[in-house]
Design a protein around this nucleic acid. Structure first.
Length: 372
RNA sequence: GGGUAGGUUGAGCAGGUGGUGAGCUCCGCUGACUGUAGAUCAGCCGUCUUCGACUGUGGGGGUUCGAUUCCCUCCCUGCCCA
């Protein structure tokens, strides 16, 4: 049977074990994706402050949209009536939808979880809504994303007891099976999600269970939270050592800082998403090779240099730090667009650089360079 | 010139009719943000030797144990009338 997406490893991890990083190619109904890839997040069917032309200019290959948010507003059925999510938002490249699983964590006090599903209180009007694995899949099918994701139960790594993590793992596995049997669309891939927090044995158990199911890709969830980089790497190594011979793409959910991405690619991850670069942009922080600049700092008011010398983005081609700092202070809308454009371009180019290094067999060297 | 309402920490205000005015919102300064309840949030924002101390209610003077408050006087601002 023809899979909706196909993944080819163009350049596998070297046999010498110097890295698990690999170069890949993901083919979807709406286009091709070079991996490792970073997916900007467009929760409400828009990457905040940008339009699809901007995203093309950034070089985004695929974006993530959110099932829970679009279900609440404007409604998945409405989007389906209007021709599906791609048409609705005028983005004809690949889209991955999150299942609403993350909202189990982020909505905190506004939800309750049981074995059958999650009950949410809408953050918009307080009304109650229920997401079961079947319902999440139905909503994602209505949206028509290229890649759907299972409803899962992530837990905050650091602040959860082993018992909580263990329960979430069991539940996530049961839901994974239900998502699989509910899923029908043949033009939409379905990824399963591994949980297990920072408990090595639970991570292992979860990886085995999820990878044994016929998913099109494997998500690693429950990280990119309050764990340390070392703990994350440890959890990642547990998962990916078990997936070494698995031909499917590996997607680490929620990771978005450059050095974090580098390390996770080294650990063998192919796909990433995060709100981080876009959110910090809106909050005044821009990414540069040395780290971050907070354009709110008074020293930028007189700085005629671009955010980053040599950056190809619109903000850097045309404007100074001084101008951007002014826009930010004046609450001008242009700031949000330019800062977002820059940060997403920065991260996209960073991933491209990683891919080039992988293609040329120079990835370990790049890691060494950037880590110091 | 007469009348009237005012003068509080960068700005705008609150409060205070004899018993210790540092409260708010802006502005400003700094930090945070990782499958987006986030163009958001947190801290600081008179001075200093900062777990505390000092100064501060337009200026000056008076009454009083004690004055932002009462009295005198001057200055400044808005409005009304000449």
């Amino acid at each position: 049977m023809n899979r909706p997406v196909s993944f080819d490893v163009l350049k596998p991890a070297p046999a010498d074990g110097s890295t698990r990083a690999r170069l890949g190619h993901l083919s979807t109904p709406h286009g091709q994706i070079q991996t490792p890839v970073f997916m900007p997040v467009g929760t409400n069917a828009t990457v905040k402050a940008l339009d699809p032309d901007d995203l093309d200019e950034v070089g985004a290959q695929i974006i993530l949209c959110n099932t829970y948010h679009l279900y609440l507003r404007p409604g998945h059925e409405r989007i389906a009536r209007l021709g599906g999510l791609h048409k609705f938002m005028a983005w004809d490249k690949p889209i991955l939808t999150d299942s609403g699983g993350y909202q189990v964590v982020s909505l905190g006090a506004f939800r309750s979880v049981d074995d059958d599903g999650v009950t949410f209180r809408s953050h918009l009007d307080g009304s109650t809504h229920r997401f079961t694995p079947e319902h999440s899949i139905a909503v994602q099918e209505a949206l028509g994303s290229d890649i759907a994701v299972c409803l899962d139960q992530p837990v905050p790594p650091h602040s959860s007891t082993r018992r909580t993590v263990a329960e979430a793992v069991v539940r996530t596995h049961a839901w994974a099976e239900r998502c699989l049997s509910a899923h029908r669309r043949s033009d939409q891939a379905l990824f399963g999600i591994v949980q297990g927090g920072l408990e090595a044995d639970l991570r292992e158990e979860s990886t085995r269970a999820i990878s044994a199911m016929p998913f099109d890709g494997i998500c690693i969830g429950g990280l990119a939270g309050d764990e340390t980089p070392a703990q994350r790497r440890e959890a990642l190594d547990v998962c990916i050592s078990l997936l070494a011979d698995d031909p499917r793409p590996r997607y680490l959910m929620g990771l978005g800082s450059a050095l974090d991405l580098l390390d996770a690619v080294d650990a063998g991850v192919d796909m990433f998403d995060s709100v981080l670069p876009a959110r910090i942009a809106r909050n005044g922080t821009v990414l540069v090779p040395e780290g971050r600049l907070n354009l709110r700092n008074s020293r930028f008011m007189d700085d005629p240099a671009p955010i980053q010398e040599g950056c190809r983005c619109r903000a850097c081609r045309s404007f100074s730090r001084a101008y951007l700092a002014h826009l930010l202070r004046a609450d001008e809308l242009l700031f949000y667009r330019l800062a977002t454009l820059h940060n997403l371009t920065f991260l996209t180019d960073f991933m491209a650089r990683i891919r080039t290094a992988l293609a040329e067999g120079k990835f370990p060297k790049l890691v060494h360079e950037l880590a110091t």
